[in-house]
Design a protein around this nucleic acid. Sequence first.
DNA 1: CTGTATCCCCGAGGATACTG
DNA 2: CAGTATCCTCGGGGATACAG
Lengths: 105, 105
Amino acid sequence: MLTKIGDKWTIFVVLSLDLLGGRARFSELERAVPGISQRMLSSTLKNLERDGMVIREVFPEVPPRVEYEMTELGRRLLHPTQGLVDWAKENWEQVREAQSRYDER
Amino acid sequence: MLTKIGDKWTIFVVLSLDLLGGRARFSELERAVPGISQRMLSSTLKNLERDGMVIREVFPEVPPRVEYEMTELGRRLLHPTQGLVDWAKENWEQVREAQSRYDER
DNA sequence: CTGTATCCCCGAGGATACTG
DNA sequence: CAGTATCCTCGGGGATACAG
């Protein structure tokens, strides 16, 4: 469970989707999450959809358009996730210093 | 950074160490974290020590005794981590249901 | 545009045995 | 007791090409 959140991209996708207003199409997310591949974005979204965190909506147009929208359940994940991000921001520097000290020995 | 927390064991070790009063020896942690191997406990603790989250203290006795103590920095990680655990507890059921619905199609 | 299919590599991590 | 050393497997995930 926590392992799912801990995979490489889920947190970034969730946060990006939120930043984009809770709703975005595939290509927007692709641009919003630097470094993610189509393969991993697709896979991550599929998992989020399966877990009920995101709803996938297909518009039968040409060219195709697909939008992803966060559900209430997904939005609830935002707070603990943001807590983690904040923690990282606030303590990153101290961690780096600890690592430097450790590595010098 | 978040990737480190996201690895398989860090969260469990941190939470267990807290449950054990913020200080415990290797074998206590081994028992407190079901399923972890010596190899992974050792490696996880080494990373936590390097990051300044934990202090390793060796007692020159026979048989050897080593104790690990959470630092203030480590303790600060507890809150966001606990937030994640709480989230999981509260929403686990809904996620399972969403998965069932998804898998039926 | 929104994916899927393939191929491939690397490292996380399990099992087991050994050591100071 | 508290690890380290070795071996080995498995799957996450990158790169690239292709498809509807």
